[in-house]
Amino acid sequence: MGFKLLSKLLVYLTASIMAIASPLAFSVDSSGEYPTVSEIPVGEVRLYQIADGVWSHIATQSFDGAVYPSNGLIVRDGDELLLIDTAWGAKNTAALLAEIEKQIGLPVTRAVSTHFHDDRVGGVDVLRAAGVATYASPSTRRLAEVEGNEIPTHSLEGLSSSGDAVRFGPVELFYPGAAHSTDNLIVYVPSASVLYGGCAIYELSRTSAGNVADADLAEWPTSIERIQQHYPEAQFVIPGHGLPGGLDLLKHTTNVVKAHTNRSVVE
């Protein structure tokens, strides 16, 4: 069995187990497998329904001669939608809004960016022009300005110390501490036991640490421990890039980060 097929099978099995364990909360999309990078042309966006009122959005972007996937989250909030992270750029984010209108038909009224990198804030200006209120932590807003990236308009308070959590509509926002970046936030959907790890969490097929220019490698494993301790009931975990899975993604990420750190020390 090929690795790609095995990865998709694991996603399907995880979703099936969740649907059985929580039949009222989960209505997993039966329309197909989780979209992969090879299936999404740059400039297009796919939506994948995880649970009743919960979707991931998947886009792709060219970077350094390669094409990478990027995940975000959409959560229903009454007759409105909360968006977590842009679709990595203005063109993708405009396509995301169009796809949401086509498939869901509810307005996106608020959006949260989970850290300051372009795959999370690139497209904020498109959201703002569409009347979406954009939010991020003060740290993310400051770092985005320093980096020359787009800056969300509103500040999220109460997320300055490791372990801080605040309720934001249908989700809980959690600051686990520094990891992929010093400002990275985690998003949890309690009604569906869905954990969105953003770039602080890796997919299972990833074996290298990737972009760690703004990471705190020493603190990252401790931050992941905080996530595990705060959300032990999480059933569906979405990484910032690639295929979702279960809580095993947290341990896998820790292993990859520690291996990278150990290699760096040896070198």
Rank of each mutant, 00 (worst) to 15 (best):
K4I: 15
K4A: 07
L5P: 02
L6A: 08
S7N: 02
L10Q: 13
V11R: 13
T14A: 13
S16K: 15
S16A: 06
M18H: 02
M18E: 04
A19C: 08
A19D: 15
L24S: 08
L24P: 06
A25I: 15
S27G: 09
S27L: 13
V28R: 07
V28F: 14
D29F: 11
S31R: 13
S31C: 11
G43L: 04
E44D: 12
V45I: 12
R46D: 15
R46N: 07
L47G: 01
Q49G: 09
D52M: 14
G53P: 14
A59V: 09
Q61M: 05
S62L: 08
F63P: 04
A66S: 07
G72Y: 00
L73Q: 06
R76M: 13
D77A: 09
G78D: 08
W88I: 03
W88L: 01
K91L: 07
K91F: 05
K91W: 12
T93Q: 14
A94C: 09
A94E: 08
L96G: 11
L96A: 11
A98C: 15
Q103P: 11
I104V: 08
I104C: 13
V108A: 09
R110P: 02
A111W: 06
S113M: 13
S113N: 15
T114I: 00
T114S: 14
H117R: 00
G122C: 03
G122T: 05
V124F: 04
V124W: 13
V126F: 10
L127V: 05
A129D: 08
G131P: 02
V132C: 07
V132E: 00
T134C: 13
R141D: 02
R142T: 15
L143C: 09
L143A: 05
V146E: 08
E150P: 15
P152L: 09
P152D: 09
G158Q: 08
G158N: 15
G158M: 06
S162G: 07
G163S: 05
G163K: 11
A165L: 12
V166Q: 13
R167E: 03
F168Q: 10
P170G: 09
P170D: 03
E172N: 15
L173G: 00
L173E: 00
G177M: 00
N184I: 01
N184W: 00
N184Q: 07
L185Y: 02
V187G: 07
Y188N: 05
S191D: 07
S191H: 06
V194Y: 02
C199M: 01
A200H: 02
A200Q: 04
S208V: 07
N211W: 13
V212D: 11
A213F: 13
A215W: 07
L217S: 13
W220R: 02
P221I: 11
S223Y: 02
E225M: 03
Q229H: 14
H230A: 12
H230D: 08
P232W: 06
E233I: 07
F236T: 08
P239A: 06
H241T: 00
H241D: 01
G242Y: 01
P244M: 06
G245N: 11
G245V: 01
L250G: 09
K251R: 06
K251P: 11
H252N: 13
H252L: 12
N255F: 04
V257L: 05
V257A: 10
V257E: 02
V257R: 11
A259I: 07
T261K: 08
T261G: 08
T261S: 06
V266C: 07
E267I: 05
E267L: 08
